[in-house]
C-alpha cells in the first residue's frame, strides 16, 4: 500500500491524509447503538426506513459492517464493545449492556438477535444476555453451521455438532 500511495499525485495524498485526520477527530460512537459514527446518532439509527422492532447485538463495529454487506438485515444494531472476559478484566459493566437493557425496556423491540462469535467468551456473553433480556422480549441467536458450498463429509466434528444443535424444521 505504501508503494501505491507514493506513486499517486501529491494532492491526492494530501486529501487522503486529511481524510484520515478528520476520521480520527470526528468519528466517535453513536449514542444509541455505539456503532462508529461521525454524528451523535449514526446513520443506521437515524434511518426511518429500517425496522425499529428488531435489534441485532454484536460485539464489534466490524460485525455491523459485515452484516450490512449481506443486505439481508433491515433492523437496528447494538454494539457491545467486546465480550465478557474476566481474564482481561472485562465484565458486563465494561460493555454497553446497561444501555442495551435501558434501550430494550424503553423501545420494547419484538426481537433481539444475538450475533456473537461462538468462542468461549462470546458464548458466555450470549448466555448472559439471553438470561438478562428474555423477560423483556423474544431473544434469538444466529445459527452456526456448515459454510455454503461446504461438503458435509469434509466438515469437522465441532462444526457438525453446532450445525446439529442449530437445526430447524424443514419449511
Amino acid at each position: 500500500m505504501a508503494l501505491h500511495i507514493l506513486k499517486r499525485p501529491e494532492t491526492e495524498i494530501q486529501a487522503l491524509a486529511q481524510a484520515l485526520i478528520d476520521a480520527k477527530q470526528q468519528v466517535g460512537l453513536c449514542s444509541v447503538c455505539f456503532h462508529l459514527s461521525a454524528e451523535p446518532v449514526c446513520e443506521i439509527c437515524r434511518n426511518t426506513n429500517r425496522d425499529d422492532h428488531t435489534i441485532c447485538v454484536v460485539s464489534d463495529s466490524r460485525d455491523v459492517i459485515a452484516l450490512e454487506k449481506t443486505r439481508e438485515y433491515h433492523g437496528k444494531y447494538h454494539v457491545l464493545g467486546g465480550v465478557i472476559s474476566p481474564m482481561d478484566g472485562i465484565g458486563p459493566e465494561q460493555l454497553t449492556i446497561q444501555s442495551l437493557v435501558r434501550r430494550v425496556s424503553q423501545q420494547k423491540p419484538k426481537e433481539i438477535i444475538l450475533a456473537i462469535s461462538p468462542s468461549v467468551e462470546g458464548e458466555t456473553t450470549t448466555l448472559y444476555l439471553g438470561q438478562l433480556l428474555k423477560p423483556f422480549t423474544r431473544v434469538t441467536r444466529i445459527a452456526f453451521g456448515l459454510p455454503v458450498g461446504g461438503d458435509l463429509e469434509y466438515a469437522d466434528e465441532v462444526t457438525l455438532a453446532r450445525a446439529l444443535e442449530g437445526r430447524r424444521e424443514l419449511d
Binding site: I84, P86, G91, P92, V120, E123, T124, L127, Y128, Q131, L132
Partner: peptide, 11 residues
C-alpha cells in the same frame, strides 16, 4: 457478581 458467575457455571 453472581449473575455472571451463573453463566460461567453453565459453561
Amino acid at each position: 457478581s453472581s449473575e455472571e458467575l451463573t453463566v460461567w457455571n453453565e459453561q
